[in-house]
Amino acid sequence: MSLISHLDEAASVIRAKSPITPVVGVVLGSGLGAWAESLAEPVVLPYSEIPFMPVSTIVGHAGKLWIGLANGVPVACLQGRVHLYEGHAPERAVFGARLLARLGCRAALLTNAAGGTRPTFQPGDLMLIRDHLNLTGQNPLVGPNEAGLGPRFPDMTHAYDRRIAALAREAASDSGVSIHEGIYAGLLGPSYETPAEITMLRTLGADAVGMSTVHEVIALRHMGVRCGAMSCITNLAAGLSPRPLDHKEVEETARQSRERFTSLLSTWVQKVGAAITGGGSWRGGAA
């Protein structure tokens, strides 16, 4: 069976459970999954009940797909993701993101927990991702291209959509939440980086580093979905942090940032949904 047929089979199972056709997709990273529980009229499916959907094994990733309404906006939300370091091939790791597109999402907002490589960052800061460095050495588009999903050589000039980024800034202002902006470096993991590697990343222009997001954005842009992404800076990277790095710290900092993050994300989703359904501002802002 082809990837398209796998996606369609998975989508049919979800559509049989919920009458909602989502227009905005959301991916929730480590410790940030609580936002899904704010959805109205929710239908929740564990990944294990969705055909071909890989299941996360990482603490802080619930492994559930939610369909519901966020302030009236039809949303499909991945509460947790899988990672390459769990043993998944890149094309498998992005299956959930592709499924959001197949369900009808025209925009996707991705979140992650990240280490700050910018010395001025503090744990709990939020960073709007302007662009990324894919330093994993892998790409989910390797292999035969399925033209029904997208072109062989998709353009990544504006992997992170300018209109969606502008709406994130508006959402931050409306929510009274301060955000930074920067470049996200995606590495393979699961080990944290060495101080020398952090120095390298800073030299390359990275402001934050993590183990997700970049492949999902590549796959979504391949399918023509416009993307925005936000990092919660949960710790300072190696060489900048005064103590050893620990995943428990990542989860705890994300939990402490939950109220600000939830307020910002809810407003961001509402603005993106209004732009899509309103038509005018959305058409003019394509990147």
Rank of each mutant, 00 (worst) to 15 (best):
G143N: 13
L135R: 10
L103A: 02
L78H: 07
G116Y: 05
G104C: 01
L84T: 05
G143W: 09
L99S: 03
P119F: 10
Y85H: 12
R102K: 15
Q122E: 14
A108H: 03
P54W: 01
L78N: 07
V73L: 07
Q122G: 00
N134A: 06
R118Y: 00
G116I: 00
P74F: 03
P119D: 12
N112Q: 11
R81D: 12
T111L: 12
V142P: 00
P74N: 07
I58A: 14
A62S: 14
A113M: 10
L65S: 04
I58N: 08
M127Q: 10
L84N: 11
Q79G: 10
Q138W: 00
A89W: 04
G63A: 06
G72Y: 01
K64I: 00
G115S: 12
D131M: 10
L141C: 04
T57C: 11
L65P: 05
C105R: 09
V59C: 00
P123S: 10
G60Y: 02
G104N: 02
Q122M: 13
P140Q: 10
G72R: 08
I129N: 08
G115W: 06
Y85M: 10
R130V: 11
A89K: 15
A108D: 11
A114N: 06
Q122C: 03
L141S: 09
C77L: 15
P74D: 02
C77A: 15
L100P: 03
G68Q: 12
F95G: 02
P54S: 02
P123E: 11
A97G: 14
H83T: 01
W66H: 15
N112Y: 04
A76T: 05
W66C: 04
H83Y: 09
G87N: 12
G137P: 14
A76D: 09
G63I: 06
P119I: 05
A89H: 12
N139C: 12
F121D: 13
V94M: 08
A101C: 09
L65E: 09
V142S: 08
C77S: 14
T111D: 13
A113T: 03
G143D: 12
N112L: 13
I67D: 05
N139M: 05
G96F: 05
A101F: 02
T136R: 00
A70H: 11
V94D: 10
R92M: 02
V94W: 07
A93D: 02
E86Q: 13
A108N: 13
L128V: 14
L65A: 04
I129W: 04
K64F: 07
A108I: 05
V82Q: 06
D131P: 01
S56K: 06
G124N: 04
T57V: 15
G60W: 08
L100T: 06
R98Y: 01
V73M: 06
P123C: 08
N134L: 01
R98H: 07
F95Q: 09
L126F: 08
A93N: 02
L69V: 03
G115P: 08
E86F: 08
H88I: 02
L109H: 04
R102D: 01
L103D: 09
L110K: 02
G96W: 04
Q138G: 01
T57E: 15
C77M: 14
G72A: 05
V142W: 10
V142M: 12
K64Y: 10
N71T: 00
